[in-house]
Design a protein around this nucleic acid. Structure first.
Length: 575
DNA sequence: GCCGTTTTCGGCCCGACTGTTTTCAGTCG
């Protein structure tokens, strides 16, 4: 898969940035490495291909020197400068920087003075009190470091978007219930719909700021107050999420919303643009540097307009080319829920779903869909109650009987296992009886990269297969993607006219944003499916659409945004 | 280390809160 090298290099550049920061190198030099890492992380094409075209320096933030480092890595698998930097510090030193509240300065100070080289050693020194011998470290700092260590040990995992959305909704409701809130919005990575988030950013206008801040810090679900000022508070929620609250003036709300939505890198880019125009942007507004007059700030549209840009959807604000696209008037029109005409991945109690066929159909019709698939598991998926051929045929018969009672079109289908050798779990003549065939991997996850890639490519060669479901098999936070060359998989999908799925299950979100963007750029139709097992899962569509929007995908690229007839014409295509 | 609709040199985003400080550095977002 092409982006593997992109990500490897991004990680190495982040590491170099951290090492340089510890060495007290120029913050601008550090930032240059961070920006290059960011560029590599969001690059949808293959960095090796860019290097082959000798076009590395055309990438934003990558100049002569960093291009040379990239070329060095692609050529030799090493970066000499990085190895020199690593040699100057103990191997586990950088993990110290993952402790909240402990930055590069203090970590280096503790290393120089006391030889702190690991989290374990740091904890010993805090507990023994020896750390207090270091100038500038007193009891409070020691206490904060111990808290940070506890947090670090408790697990550094980020929270799933779906869970964070619930906490955010509850918190908003609680704040509104206790008065003082005029307007409240969720900002941050939650608003950008990142797949996981680390904290919840809330933005409020208020007639009584102190009251709102007070409400937050005293909420029963809050287990720790991290900061508590006049217009700002930060607390830890009992489920581990940090919640940051800011109270702002109405005339600055747009500027504050823009600022707190981020991403940080997007904002830096925007502020640089502003500087070049003699403007300065902060969370309080856009200001003329000469006169100090506020020129924008009430709405986000104003803020972007002040630097000559159209409003940019939050999902795109990842410094992945959106500012250039905005400047050139080629921002995509992103897919919305209104464009979705049906769901192409759903289960019933015929396999491992929890609702009868009829309930699924009613619920889908109730959502205003034109069509709903019934795609239960195939026979080899025994754990998931996969259907035998006879059962599948009985289900098809049942669907034909039910159809006249419903306006919505019920599509017959299967989520058919791709067997270890790439054969499909149902024979071709059975697959041919279905409207839509999903193919997916549910077993033998540990095959080699070559085996897994060949397995999936073979499945895509089957003329009856329509959609590759959850293409990488990852479960966020619990199971890594299986080893697979996605670039080869996408090439096969394109060659054989198949679609790939964005699976909207909260812990799947598979494809992810970067790979979905790549697939869509290749012209592969994208199915945004919920993989519903419980009826409430139909609401997960929003999460899948979040991924699609972050992948710059418009309605024309979404398979299940097509009208029924167009969809059926596509599934009946000659392969 | 990067970059240019003020510049190929001299800049590089902005502010709140905390803890340890008599004026500010570090950290975070």
């Amino acid at each position: 898969m092409g982006p593997v090298k992109n990500f490897e290099l991004a990680r190495l550049f982040y590491e170099m940035a951290a090492l340089l920061e510890v060495k007290s190198e120029s913050v601008f030099r550090v930032r240059a490495y961070q920006r290059a890492a960011q560029t590599l992380e969001t690059l949808t094409g293959d960095v090796e291909a860019v290097a082959a075209r000798r076009a590395l320096t055309t990438l934003p933030g990558i100049g002569r020197d960093l291009a040379a480092r990239i070329a060095e890595y692609l050529g030799t698998g090493r970066i000499a400068q990085l190895e020199t930097l690593r040699a100057e510090l103990p191997p586990k030193f950088l993990t110290l920087l993952e402790i909240r509240g402990l930055g590069p300065r203090t970590a280096k100070l503790l290393y120089d003075r006391l030889g702190v080289d690991s989290v374990e050693r740091l904890e010993e020194l805090c507990r023994s009190g020896e750390i207090l011998t270091v100038p500038g470290i007193r009891a409070k700092t020691c206490e904060n470091i111990l808290k940070g260590i506890a947090l670090f040990k408790a697990g550094r995992s980020r929270t799933l978007l779906s869970a964070a959305r619930q906490v955010a909704a509850q918190t908003v409701e609680a704040l509104c219930a206790h008065g003082g809130v005029e307007r409240i919005e969720v900002a941050g990575s939650l608003r950008r719909l990142r797949e996981t988030v680390k904290d919840i950013d809330l933005l409020v206008t208020s007639t009584d700021p102190a009251r709102v801040v007070k409400t937050l810090v005293t909420l029963p679900a809050v287990i720790e107050v991290l900061a508590h000022g006049d217009t700002k508070a930060a607390v830890r929620h009992r489920d581990g999420l940090q919640i940051d609250l800011r109270v702002v003036e109405p005339e600055a709300f747009g500027a504050a919303l823009q600022y707190f939505t981020g991403s940080k890198d997007h904002n830096v880019r925007l502020r640089e643009m502003a500087r070049r125009r003699g403007l300065s942007i902060s969370e309080y507004g856009v200001f003329d540097e000469k006169t100090g007059a506020r020129v924008a700030g009430a709405t986000e549209e104003d803020v972007y307009a002040a630097v000559g840009l159209p409003w940019i959807p939050p999902e795109l604000r990842e410094s992945g080319g959106e500012i250039e696209a905005a400047r050139e008037g080629r921002l995509p029109a992103l897919v919305t829920a209104a464009a979705i005409r049906g769901d192409l991945h759903a289960h019933t109690d015929w396999s491992d779903g929890h609702q009868p066929l009829e309930r699924l159909i009613e619920a889908a019709q109730g959502r205003g869909y034109e069509y709903i698939i019934v795609s239960d598991h195939s026979k080899s998926a025994t754990m998931a109650g996969g259907l035998t051929i006879d059962e599948l045929r009985a289900q098809i018969q049942k669907i034909h009987e039910l159809q006249p009672r419903f306006k919505i079109r019920i599509l017959t289908g299967t989520e058919c296992d791709i067997l270890a050798d790439g054969a499909m779990d149902f024979p071709d003549e059975v697959l041919a009886e279905l409207d839509v065939v999903l193919a997916s991997v549910h077993s033998r996850f540990r095959q080699t990269r070559a085996e897994m890639t060949g397995r999936i490519v073979r499945a895509l060669e089957n003329p009856h297969v329509d959609i590759l479901a959850h293409p990488t098999g990852r479960l966020i936070g619990s199971r890594d993607p299986y080893e697979v060359d996605l670039e080869a998989v996408f090439a096969a999908a394109r060659r054989h006219g198949k679609a790939v799925e964005i699976n909207a299950s909260p812990d799947r979100l598979d494809l992810d944003d970067v790979h979905a963007r790549r697939a869509a750029e290749l012209g592969i139709p994208i199915a945004v499916n919920t993989d519903t097992h419980y009826l409430s899962n139909l609401d997960n569509l929003e999460l899948g659409l979040g991924v699609a929007r972050r992948a710059w995908i418009g309605p024309a690229q979404v398979l299940n945004a097509r009208p029924l007839e167009a969809l059926l014409a596509w599934t009946r295509r000659a392969s």
